[in-house]
Each structure stands twice: as structure tokens, then as C-alpha cells.
Write a protein that binds this DNA or RNA. Structure first.
Length: 1031
RNA sequence: GCGGACGUGUUGUAAUUGGUAGCCAAGCCAGACUUAGGAUCUGGUGCCGCGAGGCGUGAGGGUUCGAGUCCCUCCGUCCGCACCA
């Protein structure tokens, strides 16, 4: 027999590629460039599982295909090496994270090498190496030393402007609105000047409400928090005011939004980013306070921030919107009383048209004006409400969205058009973080305002006809304005425009664009990350000089916060710069991954993040492959960094990733088990001899009765025994080493009440009856008498669900086992054969045999059916052989270009089946075949290429050219339908005219049968497609 | 609640533009071969029916000579966002 010795073949070629640096890419040359990038992995302790390579295989196929097509291909790989799991492991074991990381990387590399990827390893990067993070710090300094006005500019320019013009005419992204003159600026102290500049820097420090995760001891970015829990670890997260570094990504909101239109990304991921940026066009309107509780006083301090504005979050100013004056010489800009209470209330609305429907105002409970404007009578209730709202967790708020709460402040504002008094309420359905933290409530046309109005019996005035406001709010933007004075009769769209114009003319507000996007909080109170190149002098942060980088991560004794609660870096001895203390927080995970694609272009460059020449050659990533879960994190931060680097002239391309494909997840099948509880076990013991307790018929049956696995997943509170609402998001990633064990409940298990809650088990351990998981140990102590019942003894209970592969769920399928048994080529082709690349699918080894059989069959065909290889036939191929191979060429090229690898694999199978059938041994046919196959199964293709007499790698062979003349048929098998139902086929020459076809079909005796004596009506003939006869 | 994607044999899937539904595999059934292998080969396999034939792409309707594909309504699954004014 002919042995397909994949191990030998694969080892040989992997060694050959490494020794010959087959995939090394140069930064120059005549060839056209093509840059294919994978999202680099975090090297976790669990190693690679079969899900990781899915995208890598796809990108490798493209890379190898592009090389065959004559491109100079850059296909690098590296490691996102900073991260929480290594640090958590360090806390537990005292092991330095660098050591753990190093070890994990070595393991990853070994696994990656076994799959036969065509990476240029000379360009490898690791985000934790000083040579690399030097440039992460460098970009930070650049951001620190920049402000934004249409584009990023040096902060020194801003100092110059201030000294000449103050803030007069200034258009710049800022945290809060400041107003001062040049004279004032020039009298400011150094400290004061630095404070003011901080208001404009693109990397700035400020006291902000952050997501504080106490169990992790650090703050988290918005995209790292889901439903009030940390994405990593699933720990509760609270809002807390802290001094933190942030990046002013909001300055780029408009450009990040517009840039999406130029990208070849999936519509869904672009939509996610659009939502995340959340642009809304509307108007800011000021409502004068009516109540005499505020002493009338027009005194106005020109230098101070207006109180109403200081309530704004950073994104409420928008320098990129020309209609939005950032320093409005605007009479509406509210004057304040002597004690800084403004005379008017600033709100933001997208529905200026509904202004005549306003019947009350609502402030967020955290709004800084709340205590100042509340009347003495209402103050106690207001204070009580504020403290109640404050103690409500993020989670409660989100879960009880429909719970209507709020209190009256006792204060009124004046409607700018009707002059009526409008009461001011506070309620936590209004968020401080968006707009100005205050709204004008139009209950007739906003469902939240509607609910509130119903609860507090406030009037509801219809101003847009079209709905039934007795029943519910009419929110649709079509209809005609009524009860609205000068807006009556207008359509909503026109009314918004006209109302906004009126508001601007009356100087009570202005058109404004708001974004939901928040500035990115950039500090983490952790050890294992990039140190900030920042020191403090008199409490003011200053950046190190660029030539002083990298600022190396110091050694510390313990990877925990200090007793005083400072971040771990505070433990380092002499963590100072020229005697001044250095910043003790470190940068977040997305710092190192924000510009890594640039570093690959020129990874050895010690003078620059990326050299001019290298960047001009590679420009941007042509194809980016990775998971869609990074839509609101990495993918938006990277785009922001890139745009900044574009602004400062470092890079030539405005967008980093031209085209992207998002591979689906390969899920695991996790098994879980139940135990009989005390009572049931006693009963069981009594009946065990005769009647084994019948619980379900099979694990499959148990699972199939509860197909909604994800919905029954919930994180289990330590003291909770009752299932809570479905929360599919919490146990998302468990690569941290302090996971909370997710518990699964399948609702439809028979005799459910006899069992404990199910727990994930390692099915291999279950089979061997060795249960060593922590959860089981806990059971043993809690339920000493409980009996674990296995499937094998027929009294079993084991269920399974399909979920994300994760170590803690014992459902990880390791690629090494597959490679040992079938080889890397089979693994590669099987993963592609599983289905469309973007689709998530459970790992299932059943089908792998089919792919393995295909490769064995191919091997038999090329090696001859004997032990010794017989020579190839060098004679001219037959028409049939040419047809097979050219059809395959066309199909493979097409499928690669539309990234449809599952159908490509299927085409290879068809071709091998056909070639085997005719026993094709033609050299020229097999040469073409080997080249076609090489992107998919590179090892076997190389070996065959060698057997065909070539001494060089197949990597740079020429992709065969499709020639239509070999595939053209002379006849076509027409399907003949009667009234649309296909009845038979008829083979007719292609050159037949419609007329000839018609008479040929009608002459056929089968037609006579189906016509059944009736006369055909219309006859539809589409040449080369179908014939349809209508009776 | 809003937005998006999807729903095809026992299973993974295919059908690129409205033109033969189920390619290629898996599984199952029957058989061949044997050096008994982690083989290999042959045939069958959507459902109903002995057959002729009928029915079939989540359900119902529509457009069309013709619908898995387009339109409407509904049901279901998955993903994203979620009090964003």
C-alpha cells in the first residue's frame, strides 16, 4: 500500500521553510505588495485550541495564494503579551509574569509552527518587550503633546495662541469650555498654565467617573465592561470618581464615523461602530429659570467655566462640527448669578420640533445644579432621591429600566415661546454622561417621558399628529405639527429645521451634534502593562523626552496594590525620574495593540516606530482577519491611533485596515454533570439493586430538550440558589486564572428536583471516574453523601451544551491531538471545510475523516498505487483531463477571491475523485493541481511538487492560468419544464437557435407524453439555461 | 424595545445574477476485497408511494413562464445596542 506519511512530510517541509526563510518579506522590490494580517493572540496558559487557527488558516491561504499570483506578501505574527491572566497568576504564585508569558509564547510558537503557517517570523513582535513598548510610550508622549483642531497639532502651538489671543476664536477639542484673554493667560502661573493645557491635550489626566472593578483592583474601559460586569473574569464593576489618564478619542468621532464608508468591512461591524460612536444631530436649548429662589444677578465671571457647561462630558463639545461654536460668542451662553448658579438650564434635544409639547424638564440626579436649584421645601426629598439613585447599582438600573422614579425640585423654567412655567424634576432615566445631563420632556412623543408623565400625572400635549397619545407616545418622525404656533402644518423634518432656526435667531440655543462615544480611559492600576513615560513635578504631570525611552517596567516584590491602595508600581524602589515621582499606573491592553500593524512593517527599526520608506511601501493592511468581538475596542482604538499618526505625518494612510474578514468562533461541546442530592441518594440506595433510577434516555436527549443553552447560562452568586434572569454575557472569557465557575441549568432534565445544580466536567475525567475539579471538591464537602452517577453505568446524568471554548468549561479541543492523528494539512482543510468562515460552529470531529480520506486518496493518485513511486506520464493530457484541471483552476481562484474556502475544498475533492477515476498520472496536470492545492495543504503540495521533479519550494510557483477553451462544451443538457416543473433533460448543441431548440424539444416523444394532447402555450427558452413550456 | 443576520435532508453544508434544490462530506443501509487496516472499493440513502407519480428549502400570502433566492405578514434562532433625549 502507499502510505501517506504526513508526519514525515510535514516535519520535513516545516524545517525546510524555517531554514530557507521561505516566507521572508523584503520592504522593497518590483512586485506589488500585499499585507495580510491576523489579530495577534494573547498567549494564554491554555495554549492554542482549534478555534484560534481558523482565521490564521484563512489568512494563510490568502497569503500563499497571493505569493503564487506574484505579490510581495507581508504576513507577520506576534504576541499581545501584556494582560491580566499573567498578572493574576503572578499574584497567586509569585511567578514573574514575564516568565509565564515567555513560557506561553514558546508553547504558542510550537503549536503555530506545527500547522504550517507562512509567517515571516523575523518580524515577530511582543508588546511586552522594551524595544516594542518604547514606541507605545512614544505615541503616548506625542498624544500628550498634542491638541486637536481639525487635526492633531503640537500643544506648543496652543500656548502660542493663548499668549496672543487667549481663547478668543479658539476651535479645539476640550474637556470643558474655558474662556480667558491673552492678558489673563500671560499672568497665569506655570501650574495654572499646565492645568489649562490639560484641558486640551489628546492624552490628559482628569478626575472622571470610571468603571472601577474592585476584585481586579483596576479601572476598565467601557468596552471592557458588559452589563455591569468585567469582560475578563465577570466581576462586578462600579462607577467611581478617580484621577485617570484618558485619550481624547472623541475629538476624532466624526472622522472615525466618516472613515467607515471607505472600508471594505462587513456591514454589521461597521454598524456596531456607528452605534458606538452614536452621532446625533440636534440642538442645545437654554430654558430660563423662573423661580425667584435664585437671586437675580447678572454678574458674570468671564474667566470661569460656565456651570452649565462644566456639567458636560468631554464629548459635548464638537470642534469638527462647524455649526457648533465651541466658544460661542453666543448671547445664549448663560450668565450666572454671583454664586455661579446659571440663569438658565441647558438641555440637548434631537427633536426641536416638539418644543411646544414640552410639559416638564428632567435633570439627572448627578447634575451639579440639582442641589442649587431645589427649593427649601423639596430639598429633603431631593437629597433622599439622589442618595437612593447613587446606591443603585449599574445593574439594577439596567434591569429595572421600566421602573419610573423621580422627584420634583420645586423649581420652574420658562418656556421660551409660550412663556409658561414648566416644572423641573430629577430622575435617573436621564443620564449625566450624555448631552448636558438634562432634557426637555415631551411626553406625547417620547416613551420614557410618557411613562414619567403618567406616573406623576403631568400633562401630555400632542404636537405631532399621527399617533394616539391616549395609548402611547407617538415617536415616529412622520406626521404633521399641531398645537405648535409657527410650526403648525409642517412635516417633522421641516419643523426641526425651522424650530432650530428660530431658536438660533432668538439666541436661546444653537444647532449641535452630540456623540455617544466617550473618551477612552487609559490608566490601569496594574503591574503587567506599559509604564507611562510621565513624572510629576509639583503635582503636575510632565512627559519624559523621547530619547529617554523606553521607560522600563520596574521589578517589584509583590504584584499587588500597596497598603495605601496605590497601584503595584508604587512598590518599586526608586520609581522616580530625576528625583520626581513617576506615574504608577500602567497602560491598558489596547495600548500595545493599537499600532502593532505598523511595527511589523519595520520591526527592527530602532530610530522610529516605522520608517518612512517601509511605511510608504506597505502603506496599510490589505486584509485583516480576526474576531468581530473587537469592534468597539481594538478596532476603534487602532483607527484612532492611526488617524493621529496620520495627522502628525508618521504614516501615509488614514485608515489602517482596508479590508477585513471576521471569522466565526469554533465552539466547544462542554459536558456537565449532576449529582443526586442527599434525599434522592438515600432513596436511590434503597432501590439501586432492582431498579436503576431512570432519568433520561441519553445525554443527547437531555440536551435537545433544552436547546437554548446560552439562555440558561448564568453566573452563580455565592449565596444564590435561585436561577436569575438569563445573562449570556458574563462568563464570556475565562482565560483569567480566577474565573467564577459558570453553572448551567437545563430546565428540562427529568426529576430535576432530585439533583444538585449541574457543573462543568472534563468528560475524559468523568469517563475515568476521576473527578478533580474544584466544583466537585466543593460538592464532596457540601454533600458528602451525594452520588455522582455516570452514563456508563446506565444510571447516569450528563448533559452537554455548545459554548465558547474555554479551559474552565473543559471543552477545549487542542489542535496538537488532531495533528498527531491526521496531520496539519488535514486540520487546515477540515477547518476550512466546516462551513463559511464567518460562521460560528461547534467543533465536531466526525467530518474530519472525510478530509483525511481525500488527502490519502490524492496521495495514492500521485504516488502510484505501489510502494515505489512510479514516474509521471509526460505526454499531452487528454481533453478530459484538461477540462477537469481548468474547471478546478477557475473554481479555486473564484472561491479564494470570494473567501469561500469550504466550497474550494469540496472542488478539490471532486477533482481528485474524477482524476482518480481515470487514473490520471499526467505530469502537467499534477503540477497545476499541486500549485492549486498548496495554499490549503502546503506540506503535501510541496512534497508532490518535489516528486514532480522540482528542487525549489512551490511557494513562488506561478498560479496556473485558466483557459476557457478547455472547459467549453459543445452541447448543453437542457432541463425541460412543463408549467415550471422539471420533467426531463435534453442534450442539444450549444449553437442551436431558440427556434431550433423549440422544434427539437417539441419533437421529443417525452414532450408528447407531458403535453398529454394539449397544445403548448408560451414556450420560454433561455439559451444555456432552461426550457419551460406553459400549457 | 431598537438595529442586523439567518432559518434547506439524520448532521455539517452547496446552489456566485430569479432558471435542474440537496454539490462535497458525515452518518446510516447493502455488498466486495483482504496482507483484518486508525484500511480500501462498489451501490443506495430528502419525504410519501409497489409503481406511475405526488410532496418538499420555518408558516401563510404575493409577484413571475419559473422563487431557497424578490415583496408582504407571522413564527423561531443568533448577534449587536440598550433609559443616548
Amino acid at each position: 500500500m502507499s502510505g501517506y506519511n504526513f508526519t514525515e512530510i510535514e516535519n520535513y517541509w516545516q524545517k525546510y521553510w524555517a531554514e530557507n526563510k521561505t516566507f521572508k518579506a523584503e520592504n522593497t522590490g518590483d512586485k506589488e505588495k500585499y499585507y495580510v494580517l491576523d489579530m495577534f493572540p494573547y498567549p494564554s496558559g491554555a495554549g492554542l485550541h482549534v478555534g484560534h487557527p481558523l482565521g490564521y488558516i484563512a489568512s494563510d491561504i490568502i497569503s500563499r495564494y497571493k505569493r503564487l499570483k506574484g505579490f510581495n506578501v507581508l504576513h507577520p505574527m506576534g504576541y499581545d503579551a501584556y494582560g491580566l491572566p499573567a498578572e493574576q497568576y503572578a499574584i497567586q504564585t509569585g511567578q514573574h509574569p514575564a516568565i509565564t508569558t515567555e513560557r506561553n509564547i514558546a508553547r504558542y510558537r510550537e503549536q503555530l509552527d506545527r500547522i504550517g503557517f507562512s509567517f515571516d517570523w523575523d518580524r515577530e513582535i511582543r508588546t511586552n518587550s522594551p524595544e516594542y513598548y518604547k514606541w507605545t510610550q512614544w505615541v503616548f508622549i506625542k498624544l500628550f503633546n498634542s491638541y486637536y483642531s481639525g487635526q492633531a497639532r503640537p500643544i506648543s502651538e496652543l500656548e502660542d495662541i493663548f499668549s496672543k489671543h487667549g481663547t478668543n476664536g479658539l476651535q479645539a477639542a476640550q474637556s470643558k469650555e474655558l474662556t480667558f484673554t491673552a492678558e489673563q493667560w500671560n499672568t497665569y502661573s506655570e501650574q495654572k498654565k499646565q492645568e489649562v493645557l490639560m484641558n486640551y491635550r489628546l492624552a490628559y489626566i482628569s478626575e472622571t467617573a470610571v468603571n472601577w472593578c474592585s476584585p481586579l483592583g483596576t479601572v476598565l474601559a467601557n468596552d471592557e465592561v458588559v452589563n455591569g460586569f468585567s469582560v475578563r473574569g465577570g466581576h462586578p464593576v462600579e462607577r467611581k470618581l478617580m484621577k485617570q489618564w484618558s485619550l481624547r478619542i472623541t475629538a476624532y468621532a466624526e472622522r472615525l464615523l466618516n472613515g467607515l464608508d471607505t472600508l471594505d468591512w462587513s456591514e454589521s461591524i461597521k454598524e456596531v461602530q456607528r452605534n458606538w460612536i452614536g452621532k446625533s444631530i440636534g440642538a442645545t436649548i437654554y430654558f430660563q429659570f423662573a423661580t425667584p429662589a435664585i437671586p437675580a444677578n447678572s454678574a458674570n465671571s468671564a474667566t470661569s467655566a460656565t456651570s452649565a457647561n462644566s456639567a458636560n462630558s468631554a464629548n459635548s463639545t464638537n470642534p469638527t462640527n462647524p455649526t457648533n461654536p465651541t466658544n460661542p460668542a453666543n448671547p445664549a451662553n448663560p450668565a450666572t448669578t454671583a454664586d455661579n448658579v446659571p440663569l438658565s438650564l441647558e438641555i440637548f434635544t434631537t427633536r426641536a420640533d416638539t418644543i411646544f409639547g414640552v410639559t416638564f424638564m428632567v435633570l439627572s440626579p448627578e447634575h451639579p445644579l440639582v442641589l442649587k436649584i431645589s427649593t427649601q421645601d423639596e430639598l429633603p426629598k431631593v437629597i433622599e432621591y439622589i442618595s437612593w439613585a447613587k446606591n443603585r447599582t449599574e445593574r439594577e438600573r439596567q434591569q429595572e429600566v421600566n421602573k419610573v422614579t423621580g422627584v420634583f425640585t420645586g423649581t420652574y423654567v420658562i418656556h421660551p415661546f409660550t412663556g409658561k412655567k414648566i416644572p423641573v424634576y430629577i430622575s435617573d432615566y436621564v443620564l449625566m454622561g450624555y448631552g448636558s445631563g438634562a432634557i426637555m420632556a415631551v411626553p406625547a412623543h417620547d416613551s420614557r417621558d410618557y411613562r414619567f408623565a403618567k406616573k406623576f400625572s403631568l400633562p401630555i400635549v400632542e404636537v405631532v399628529a399621527g399617533g394616539n397619545i391616549e395609548e402611547e407616545a407617538y415617536e415616529a418622525k412622520d406626521g404633521t405639527l399641531v398645537n405648535s404656533d409657527f410650526l403648525n402644518g409642517l412635516k417633522v423634518k421641516d419643523a426641526i429645521k425651522k424650530a432650530t432656526e428660530f431658536i438660533e435667531n432668538k439666541k436661546i440655543g444653537f444647532a449641535r451634534t452630540n456623540y455617544r462615544l466617550r473618551d477612552a480611559i487609559f490608566s490601569r492600576q496594574r503591574y503587567w502593562g506599559e509604564p507611562f513615560p510621565i513624572y510629576y513635578k509639583d503635582g503636575i504631570p510632565y512627559a519624559l523626552k523621547e530619547n529617554e525611552l523606553p521607560l522600563q517596567l520596574p521589578e517589584i516584590d509583590k504584584y499587588l496594590p500597596t497598603e495605601k491602595g496605590e497601584p503595584p508600581l508604587a512598590r518599586a524602589t526608586d520609581w522616580t525620574y530625576s528625583g520626581y515621582p513617576l506615574e504608577t499606573s500602567t497602560m491598558p491592553g489596547f495600548a500595545g495593540s493599537s499600532a502593532y500593524y505598523l511595527r511589523y512593517m519595520d520591526s527592527q527599526n530602532s530610530e522610529a516606530l516605522v520608517g518612512k520608506k517601509a511605511n510608504e511601501y506597505w502603506r496599510e493592511v490589505d486584509l485583516y482577519v480576526g474576531g468581530s468581538e473587537h469592534a468597539t475596542g481594538h478596532l476603534i482604538y487602532s483607527r484612532f491611533w492611526n488617524k493621529f499618526l496620520y495627522d502628525i505625518g508618521l504614516v501615509v494612510s488614514d485608515e489602517p485596515f482596508k479590508k477585513m474578514i471576521n471569522q466565526g468562533m469554533i465552539q466547544g461541546r462542554s459536558s456537565f454533570a449532576y449529582r443526586l442530592n442527599h434525599q434522592s441518594y438515600k432513596e436511590y440506595l434503597q432501590t439501586a439493586d432492582s431498579t436503576p433510577l431512570q432519568l433520561a434516555t441519553s445525554p443527547r436527549a437531555a440536551a435537545s430538550t433544552s436547546p437554548r443553552a446560552a439562555a440558561s447560562t448564568f453566573p452563580r452568586a455565592a449565596d444564590s440558589t435561585s436561577p436569575r434572569a438569563a445573562d449570556p454575557t458574563s462568563p464570556q472569557s475565562t482565560s483569567t486564572s480566577i474565573p467564577i465557575a459558570p453553572i448551567f441549568v437545563s430546565k428540562n432534565i427529568p426529576n430535576r428536583e432530585k439533583f444538585t445544580d449541574p457543573v462543568h466536567v472534563d468528560i475524559h475525567l468523568v469517563e475515568n471516574d476521576v473527578l478533580d475539579t474544584d466544583a466537585f471538591k466543593k460538592w464532596q464537602s457540601d454533600l458528602a453523601e451525594a452520588q455522582f452517577i455516570t452514563e456508563s453505568d446506565g444510571r447516569y446524568i450528563c448533559g452537554y451544551e455548545i459554548e465558547k471554548m474555554s479551559k474552565s468549561m473543559y471543552n477545549v479541543q487542542n489542535p496538537d491531538e488532531i495533528i498527531d492523528r491526521y496531520g496539519a494539512d488535514t486540520l487546515r482543510m477540515y477547518e476550512m471545510f466546516l462551513g463559511p468562515i464567518e460562521q460560528s460552529k461547534p467543533w465536531d470531529t466526525k467530518g474530519i475523516e472525510g478530509v483525511f480520506r481525500f488527502l490519502k486518496k490524492y496521495w495514492r493518485l500521485v504516488s502510484g498505487d505501489e510502494d515505489i513511486a512510479i514516474p509521471f506520464d509526460e505526454s499531452e493530457p487528454t481533453a478530459q483531463e484538461l477540462k477537469i484541471i481548468h474547471n478546478l483552476i477557475r473554481k479555486i481562484e473564484e472561491d479564494i477571491n470570494r473567501i469561500s474556502f469550504n466550497t474550494a475544498v469540496s472542488s478539490f475533492m471532486i477533482a481528485v475523485n474524477e482524476l482518480s477515476e481515470i487514473g490520471c498520472r499526467k505530469k502537467s496536470i499534477h503540477e497545476k493541481f499541486a500549485i492549486l492545492l498548496s495554499p490549503f495543504a502546503p506540506h503535501i503540495a510541496e512534497e508532490v511538487w518535489r516528486m514532480l521533479g522540482h528542487n525549489e519550494t512551490v511557494t513562488y510557483a506561478e498560479f496556473p492560468k485558466y483557459e476557457e477553451k478547455y472547459t467549453i462544451e459543445s452541447t448543453f443538457d437542457y432541463p425541460v419544464s412543463f408549467n415550471g416543473k422539471m420533467r426531463f433533460t435534453i442534450s442539444l448543441p450549444l449553437e442551436n437557435t431558440v427556434k431550433e431548440i423549440e422544434s427539437a424539444v417539441l419533437a421529443d416523444e417525452r414532450s408528447t407524453k407531458w403535453l398529454d394532447g394539449k397544445t403548448p402555450g408560451k414556450i420560454i427558452i433561455v439559451p444555456k439555461r432552461i426550457i419551460n413550456i406553459v400549457i
